[in-house]
Design a protein around this nucleic acid. Structure first.
Length: 301
DNA sequence: CATATGTCCTGAGAGC
DNA sequence: TGCTCTCAGGACATAT
């Protein structure tokens, strides 16, 4: 499930398309239900054909590709989507291909119109479950529909931003960390890892989190996400997540709590990692060293 | 307005 | 073995 580190890895992996020109946009043949594409493929091809990629960026968990005529492609991998250059895991779940060339030579020789394309490269969107979306939009729409709905990027969060934006919320801190309108980029894996490193009970309500706790959460956010980027993200046991050339991430080796129910806590050596469900999602934590002081109604002080 | 629940989708794995 | 059922969770629509 691509979160900030995985999406950052995707962006870095495909950044070599910057400066290249689109020659075609192809919706791969797929018997499965088509992914959400807006506008439809023919219009998308018409708009993008001939345009040069200016830059590849990340917006929270989305990949943002800016083209020269102020068109922006917003790719949301959601659960199983991958943005790649080559070697997709299979052809079955290949959804979209954008074909580039670095150089387009057009001219006449011997009275015949010739067109020479140099250096082909493709950007692929592969998505097993098909929940991902690919949308093309103008800057006003991008600003209104995407950017304005997102909180600050997780790597830009400070303890005071956390405190100001979260302290009036009545939901559990773990649930709030997943809310992209409060902070952009954190998903289920990294929310668990961040709260473990910060030593904060995931059930603690935001309006009960203390100043020192916000500082620890802020510090842990940077620490966990930056390290996970160095490791190129987490490829879980289902093997779904891959980088742009089908390599695995390795941060899963560093997970301290995620998907480790029943394992002894690496920090306190006493607790065993618990799994609970919050907002229909699994939460993993150490009940000993993330025991909240004073706040959760179902826990003794 | 804020918070909670339902929906989409496919494949892996459990259980019988 | 093969079937049915449940689950995984990101974002958004709809409900409370």
């Amino acid at each position: 499930m691509p979160e900030l580190p995985e999406v950052e890895t995707m962006c870095r992996g495909i950044r070599s398309i910057e400066g290249l020109r689109v020659t075609d946009v192809i919706m791969s043949e797929c018997q499965l239900k088509p992914i959400s594409l807006s506008p439809p493929i023919s219009e998308m091809r018409r708009v993008l054909e001939g345009q040069k990629v200016l830059r590849v960026d990340r917006l929270g968990k989305r990949v943002l590709i800016q083209f020269e005529k102020d068109d922006y492609l917003v790719i949301e991998p959601r659960m199983t989507g991958l943005v790649m250059l080559e070697n997709p895991p299979n052809q079955t779940h290949l959804r979209l291909e954008i074909v580039f060339c670095s150089c387009l030579i057009e001219g006449q020789s011997d009275g015949i119109q010739r067109r020479t394309v140099v250096t082909h490269k493709k950007m692929l969107f592969w998505d097993r479950r098909g929940l991902g979306t690919v949308r093309l939009m103008k800057p006003e729409v991008l600003n209104h529909r995407v950017i304005r709905r997102l909180g600050p990027d997780a790597l830009r969060m400070t303890s005071s931003l956390y405190a100001e934006n979260f302290k009036h919320k009545k939901k559990a801190i773990k649930v709030a960390l997943l809310d992209q309108s409060l902070v952009a980029g954190i998903g289920n894996i990294y929310a668990a890892e961040i709260l473990f490193l910060a030593g904060v009970d995931p059930r603690l309500l935001c309006n009960q989190v203390t100043g020192p706790q916000w500082q620890r959460i802020s510090k842990a956010t940077r620490e966990i996400l930056l390290t996970a980027i160095e490791y190129e993200g987490s490829t879980l046991s289902d093997g779904t997540y891959r980088n742009a050339i089908n390599g695995e991430g390795s941060y899963q080796q560093c997970h301290r709590v995620y998907d480790r129910e029943g394992v002894s806590c690496t920090r306190c050596q006493q607790g065993k990692i618990s799994r609970i469900v919050q907002a229909q999602r699994s939460t993993f934590f150490c009940p000993v060293c993330q025991r909240k002081r004073g706040c959760h109604p179902s826990l003794p002080q």
